[in-house]
Nucleic acid binder design. Structure first.
Lengths: 164, 164
DNA sequence: CGTTACTGATTGTATATTGCAAGTGGTTTT
DNA sequence: AAAACCACTTGCAATATACAATCAGTAACG
């Protein structure tokens, strides 16, 4: 964001996130629990290229959406975490998922999670954001019963199994 | 969308809207009441190039977000209209505006409208979407008092006047 | 009728970004 | 010691973008 086109909130959001890959990476970190370069590279539905991934991780870190730290278990490994700023993008993902489900040719398995989250409403979104804060910001989490992350995962696995 | 990367709702939405200009054009049509090529070209905060504008109008029309019709007042003039699919992007703009206002260096004048819409809640969003349907789809509109579009415009003008 | 301006574009050119394959230096596993 | 894995980096071709100039068909004006 060295030079910006205008101070409009929509435009500025677009300057940070308006490309084909940044939100894909954040989606995989949020909903797919990816924290390392290799996980984001190999386990991606869309097949991002390594140089683009490296560039976007740098950019997202610079723009305050990610932080990067050494993984104590492995000297070469870097671990990426979502910041509060990124966690607050959850409603954007919900809205994008809802619109995509309604207007685009989505596949069933890949949209059941969006549907669950859409129908769960703000209570579920807040619970999930608290779980992300616990996982990425080290905040204390108190919960009872299955987490939203677990419910999302279970829903996805069930859809996969049903489809074969 | 000849070949798609995956059937994920987030990804598909990104394939349609995930570039630097498409949402800017839709924003100007929704909130700035631009309907013609020249209006979108010259009265844009961000200064889009004419070839990019022509390309995006074609694309958005192909993807079912816009329709193009002849303007009866001028045989050379084309008038662009939002489709229902595009009108349903309003919540996305609200969420993007809210996030941008909170996390990016927006200017006051260009964010008062986003604030009004954010605080207005779903009732105001639905009213505004109905106004867009009336203006772009020719549907009948019944309302009393000032329209949401008028309130947004008044808020913006007041902010401009106050700032000098 | 002739000039001028305006319409929605298109064309040309230079630069920036992207996608893909391969390679880097180092670490861990076997 | 060999193989696999780690987070990237590099080279190169293809694509996208920015910016300026140009186009032909109206329309308004004198």
């Amino acid at each position: 964001m060295v030079e910006m086109r205008s101070g409009c909130p929509i435009n500025l959001t677009l300057e940070v996130l308006g490309d084909r890959w940044s939100l894909i990476i954040l989606r995989d970190m949020m909903f797919g629990n990816r924290r390392h370069f290799r996980e984001l590279l190999n386990r991606s539905e869309e097949g991002i290229a390594s140089n683009i991934l490296a560039d976007r991780l740098k950019r997202l870190t610079r723009d305050g959406l990610l932080t990067r730290a050494d993984d104590p278990s492995h000297k070469q490994k870097a671990i990426y975490s979502l910041t509060e700023k990124a966690i607050q993008l959850l409603p954007l993902f919900v809205v994008m998922g809802a619109w995509g489900r309604r207007h685009l040719p989505v596949t069933h398995e890949l949209s059941v999670r969006a549907r669950l989250l859409e129908e769960g409403g703000p209570d579920m979104w807040n619970a999930f954001m608290d779980e992300l804060r616990a996982a990425h910001l080290g905040l204390l989490l108190e919960h009872e019963g299955p987490t939203v992350a677990e419910r999302l995962q279970a829903t996805y696995q069930a859809a996969l199994a049903a489809r074969g």
